[in-house]
Amino acid sequence: MTDQAAPAPLIGPKRDLAPLLLPLAIAGFAFLLIGSPTTWLTLTLAALAMGMMVFVIASGLTLIFGLMDVINFGHGAFIAIGAYLAMAVLGPLAPWMQADSLTLNLAALFLAIIAAMLGTGVLGYAFERVLVRPVYGQHLKQILITMGGLIVVEQLLHVIFGGDQKTMALPTALRGAVLIGNVALEKYRLLAVAVGLLVFLVMQLTLNRTRIGLLIRAGVENAEMVEALGYRIRRLFVGVFIAGSALAGLGGVLWALYRETFTAAIGGDVVVLVFIVIIIGGLGSVGGCFLGAILVAMMANYTAFLAPKVALASSILLMVTILMWRPQGLYPVAKR
């Protein structure tokens, strides 16, 4: 009531480029430590691939938070569901996967991804309806309920698919690496980078060029004003929740293929990285999430080579350092 409308800072969030130098700095620094250019390139590609997968999973979560102040601690469940659904689809398609034809391989993968995204999207809708909706605005209960949902989903996956470790082999054409000079670039990692970039691109276009996208960005900043303009923010939020869940499903497929074995707990490991990423990026910011994913993945891959024992600890270190520099993350979202 009393604040004198302070003049806004003259720099818009879009012109803030300093954080973009971070990945370059880390990559450069790692290059000096690693020494061998080929190893460095391989690791960097691995980092980019991993970063893209983490980004795909994290982007939905950060928007869900931005819009409705909801953090879904059960987000990992959709990663697992995506992986299992893909496995179920790829089972009958095994001949396509083993055929020595890139087209057939990709077709099989495409079908699996579609199934996984549809399935996780529908389940995301149910999850929002049953678990999240009754506890809007109550953070403590939200954390507990979504965590409970995660337990239940993981257990149900065991009931349906059995509790043993599953394997998901890469299709024939995506195994191995392409050699450029004496640098080996793994084919699957290239694919993961491509898929991740595609998702990022589509997301950027949606957020910047469509009315829905504008509404999402406006809603992240001030949901109440979006309602006062005559839009139902809840409907928008449910849509984003579904899309976020579907993206987690996609991420789950990619991640399971990357690791080639998984259990229902597959989401747990990733979600830790995902949380670090969205904290680093600034809760609610898609751009920050993209950058954060690359940073965390770089840190993870370089340290896995240089000092394997402290891989995850290095991500924590990165997070703490960044939070000391910018307590709200790299690209804080202007809130109300």
Partner: peptide, 11 residues
């Protein structure tokens, strides 16, 4: 038109 103006500063 709220007191805080509530313009979407990112847009």
């Amino acid at each position: 038109v709220p007191e805080t103006m509530a313009v979407f500063s990112d847009l």
